Lab assay of single mutants.
Amino acid sequence: NQASVVANQLIPINTALTLAMMRSEVVTPVGIPAEDIPRLVSMQVNRAVPLGTTLMPDMVKGYA
């Protein structure tokens, strides 16, 4: 099963992502692949992401 990127904390809108904000977890539906975590660092979210939410490509500016 593919691990996805999950929010490790509440991430406010327009926040630049850091490693501490993300974790890898096997979830359904599948979100951004966990191997993309290094690429996500310093990218901004375009909405508030609650703790435990799977990051989807449309939630991260410049990812999709």
Rank of each mutant, 00 (worst) to 15 (best):
L19A: 13
M43N: 04
R23H: 07
I11L: 13
T54A: 05
T28F: 05
V27W: 02
P29F: 05
L55I: 15
I13T: 14
P57C: 15
P50I: 04
T54N: 02
V27F: 02
P50V: 10
A3G: 13
N1Q: 15
V26F: 15
I32V: 14
P12H: 11
P57N: 13
M21L: 08
P38E: 07
S24P: 13
Q44E: 08
N46T: 13
P57S: 12
P12E: 08
V45G: 01
V60W: 01
N1L: 14
M59F: 08
V30H: 12
G52H: 11
N14W: 08
V30K: 03
Q44T: 13
R47W: 05
Q2R: 03
A64E: 10
L51Q: 10
T15E: 11
L19W: 11
P33Y: 13
G62P: 08
Q44G: 06
I37C: 03
S24H: 15
I32R: 00
S42N: 06
A34L: 04
T18C: 03
T15R: 05
L19M: 13
I13M: 09
T53N: 13
M56L: 15
M59S: 07
N46S: 12
G62M: 09
S4V: 02
M59Y: 14
P12S: 11
V49N: 01
E25R: 03
P50C: 09
A7N: 02
V49F: 02
M56N: 11
T54P: 05
V26D: 15
M59W: 10
P29C: 15
M21E: 02
E35L: 08
A16H: 09
M21Y: 05
P29D: 12
A64W: 02
P57Y: 10
M43V: 04
L51R: 07
D36K: 04
S4L: 01
M59Q: 09
N14P: 00
V41Y: 06
T15S: 08
L17Q: 01
A64Q: 12
A20P: 15
A34I: 10
A34E: 14
N14M: 11
A16Q: 14
V27I: 10
E25C: 04
A7V: 06
L17C: 02
L19Y: 14
T18F: 04
S24L: 06
A16D: 15
L10H: 10
M22G: 00
V26T: 06
Q2C: 14
P57E: 08
I32G: 01
E35R: 03
S42Q: 13
P38K: 11
G62V: 04
L10G: 14
A3I: 11
G52I: 01
I13Q: 05
M22L: 11
N14D: 14
T53C: 04
N8W: 10
A7F: 01
A48I: 12
M22S: 01
L19P: 09
D36T: 13
Y63N: 08
T18P: 01
I32N: 00
R47M: 14
R47F: 14
V60F: 07
D58F: 07
G31C: 03
P50M: 11
P33C: 04
M43T: 12
P38D: 15
A3Y: 09
P50R: 06
G31D: 00
P38V: 13
D36V: 05
L51V: 09
A48Q: 14
T18L: 07
Q2I: 10
A34G: 07
L40Y: 02
L40Q: 00
M59P: 02
V45K: 00
L55W: 00
I11R: 00
S24I: 15
V27S: 07
T54K: 05
R23F: 06
P12F: 05
N14C: 11
V60I: 11
S42T: 14
L19E: 09
R39V: 07
N8T: 09
A64R: 14
A16T: 05
A20N: 12
E25F: 04
Q44A: 12
I32Q: 00
V30D: 14
S42K: 08
V45N: 03
E25S: 06
V6L: 09
M59D: 09
L19H: 14
N8R: 10
S4M: 03
N46W: 07
I11E: 01
I37D: 00
L19I: 13
L55S: 01
N46A: 10
G31Q: 03
Q9F: 10
R39L: 08
M56Q: 09
T15I: 07
V5I: 07
M43G: 03
A34R: 03
D58P: 07
R47K: 13
I37T: 07
P33I: 13
I11A: 01
T54C: 04
R23Y: 07
A64V: 15
R47Y: 14
P12V: 11
V41I: 11
M59R: 03
G62A: 15
T54R: 03
P29V: 07
D36M: 07
A64H: 15
G31N: 01
P12Y: 11
D58T: 14
L10D: 14
V6T: 14
A34F: 11
A48M: 08
M21V: 08
Q44C: 08
P12L: 05
Y63H: 04
N46V: 14
M21R: 03
A7T: 12
M43W: 07
K61D: 06
A20W: 15
T18D: 13
Q2G: 15
L55M: 08
Q44H: 12
R23I: 07
M43Y: 14
P33H: 12
M56A: 11
E35F: 04
G31V: 02
N8Y: 07
